[in-house]
Amino acid sequence: MLIGKPPDIPSSEITPPSAYREFMNRRRFLKGAAAAGAAALAADRVARLIEPGRVAFAETKLQTVPSPLTTTGEQLTSFEDITHYNNFYEFGVDKGDPAKNAGGLPTRPWTVKVEGKVAKPLTFSIDDLLKLRPLEDRVYRHRCVEAWSMVIPWVGYSLSEFIKQCDPLPSAKYVQFLSYFDRHVEKWSGESTIFWPYSEGLRMDEAMNPLTLLTFGLYGDTLPNQDGAPVRVVVPWKYGFKSAKSVVTVRFVDKQPSTTWNDMAPNEYGFYSNVNPSVDHPRWSQKRERRIGLPFYAQWRDTLMFNGYGDQVASMYAGMNLRRDY
């Protein structure tokens, strides 16, 4: 098992990519500015004027602590690839679209509404959520149903910590997550026939599993918009689409909630959608996967049952027929 010793350096200690990207920017800009005899301060101001988008959406560094639940022994996927190869269909169906189009997502102020089978409905602001528990560095493998995978250093804490604050009733058997939706902001949402907002759900025990992460950042910084800012769910043993992005509503329910891809094509996307190399998808064999960022001749590797997290999650499915409940 690859879970165990935390990395020597928490990802919060790594120079955040936004910092060196800005540095590169400034250096590039200074080449011209020096010739013009401009001071560094002025150069920085001008640079901000020239590229307001970059500065306005720059990620901010988060205070993090190491976690025993992090995955070790894997080479991290680059920040560039994690942020430029996204399925976020509200911002376009091409993998490169969300990086281009998600700039308008209003991540602050942001509230998460808690409703349904709870003692009393609640609303959390993003700042409340960030302060609720210490933010942990958790590296997870991320396996998309399309047969590609990444290794991502997320930042967050177990969703169970948040659920405890929500005070769900005993009748709450499932939890549903609804993503932000505004067709004026997400003008690209008509590129597919999906019925918005995006909905995902977990069984209560799955949601309470310590691996399920309420996620606020990656590579030590707050989440870039295209990766589901400002708060998302990450369920590392399930196909990526189970991990709802930009969550605005958490609803506790007594029946299995309707979920977006399961509604679109139930024969292709089951409610559980646990990573399982022995159950093929009608479009893709799930036996192998392509690791993002490697050359084409080195991309393929065998897919692991439960994406390699069986030790922590397999017991939840004891006695279930995973061929039927895929």
């Binding site: 690839d81 190869y85 960022g293 050359p295 084409f296 991309q299």
Partner: peptide
């Protein structure tokens, strides 16, 4: 792209 290892994040899918 193949020679310079510059086929994007998912080289196989790009091809």
């Amino acid at each position: 792209g193949a020679v310079t290892n510059n086929l994007g994040p998912d080289a196989t899918a790009e091809i």
